[in-house]
Amino acid sequence: MSSSLAFIMNMGGFGIILLLFSLAYFILWIYCLIDVIRSDFKDSNMKLIWVIILLLAHGLGPIVYLVIGKNSKAQL
């Protein structure tokens, strides 16, 4: 068994919760990145800015995008 898997197994319930939270946050990050790439924005530079924010600010980037970034999209 790998050492990281053994570490998580030895942590008990907390390790499983931490693993599930990490997986959910990674899925949220991927969703935001795909949404930015597929969307059109009012300002053409905003797509690049949001991609950079998502890549460099892993902790807050997806949350900031969901709160602020959705308003900067172009209306169809």
Rank of each mutant, 00 (worst) to 15 (best):
C32A: 14
L55M: 13
G12H: 03
A24T: 09
L54M: 06
F21P: 07
N71G: 08
D43Q: 03
S3V: 11
L18N: 09
I17L: 15
M9R: 10
A6Q: 15
I30R: 14
K42M: 09
G61K: 01
L5M: 13
L48G: 15
S44F: 00
K47H: 04
S3I: 13
L54G: 04
V51M: 14
I63T: 02
K70E: 06
I34Y: 10
L28H: 05
I52L: 15
V67S: 04
K42P: 05
I63Y: 00
C32D: 02
D43E: 00
K70T: 08
L66S: 10
F41Y: 12
L60K: 07
A6R: 05
K70I: 13
Y25D: 04
L60T: 03
L23I: 11
L56N: 07
I49C: 08
S3G: 10
D40G: 07
W50P: 05
D40K: 14
I68N: 10
M11G: 11
I30F: 15
F41V: 11
A6I: 11
I34R: 05
S22A: 12
W29L: 10
I30M: 13
D35Q: 12
A6F: 12
F21R: 11
A74R: 04
L19V: 07
S22G: 15
K47D: 03
I37D: 06
M1W: 15
L23F: 15
L19E: 06
K70A: 02
V51L: 14
L28N: 04
A24S: 13
M11V: 09
I27T: 13
